[in-house]
Amino acid sequence: IDVRFTVNGLDVTVRVRTEEIAERVKELAKNGVDWREIQRIAEELNK
């Protein structure tokens, strides 16, 4: 599942395995978490 969001004007796409992880990623993006941090968290959750 590809999750797309915009952080500080940057369009970011993170690929995740499940809808649940996708929701977590969207939540982080909404809360203004840095995209590199979101990427790292997504990689952890995908394991």
Rank of each mutant, 00 (worst) to 15 (best):
R17D: 07
R15P: 06
R15L: 09
A29G: 05
E23W: 10
G32E: 06
R24H: 13
V12S: 03
R4F: 13
V16N: 00
D11R: 10
L28D: 01
E19S: 12
R4T: 14
V14L: 14
T18N: 14
N46Y: 04
V14H: 01
R4V: 15
R40V: 09
E19Y: 13
E23T: 11
G32S: 07
I41H: 04
F5M: 10
E27S: 08
R15D: 03
L28N: 01
A29P: 01
V33H: 08
T18P: 01
I1G: 04
A29M: 12
E23H: 11
Q39D: 04
V12N: 02
I41R: 04
W35P: 11
I21R: 00
K26V: 09
N46H: 03
E43D: 14
V33S: 06
I21P: 00
L45F: 06
E20M: 09
E19A: 12
R36K: 14
L45D: 03
G32Y: 05
G32C: 05
T18Q: 02
W35V: 14
V7S: 10
E27Y: 09
I1D: 03
A42G: 02
V12Y: 15
A42W: 03
V33A: 08
R17F: 15
L45P: 01
N8D: 13
K30H: 11
K47A: 15
R15Y: 12
R4W: 13
W35M: 10
W35K: 03
L45G: 03
G32W: 03
D2Y: 14
L45V: 02
I38Q: 00
T13W: 12
G32F: 06
D2F: 12
V7W: 10
F5Q: 01
A42R: 01
I1A: 04
I21T: 03
I21V: 06
E23A: 12
A42I: 12
E37Q: 08
V12H: 13
V12E: 03
Q39L: 15
R40N: 08
L10Y: 14
I38E: 00
T18K: 02
R36P: 14
D11V: 15
D2G: 05
E43K: 09
E19C: 08
T13E: 07
I1E: 03
R40I: 09
N31R: 13
K26L: 14
D34Y: 08
A29N: 06
K26T: 08
A22I: 02
V25F: 02
G9S: 04
N8T: 04
D11E: 15
T13S: 13
I38W: 02
V16I: 02
D2P: 09
D11G: 08
W35E: 05
D34K: 07
K26E: 06
V16Y: 01
A22R: 04
A22P: 00
T6I: 11
R15W: 15
Q39I: 15
V16G: 01
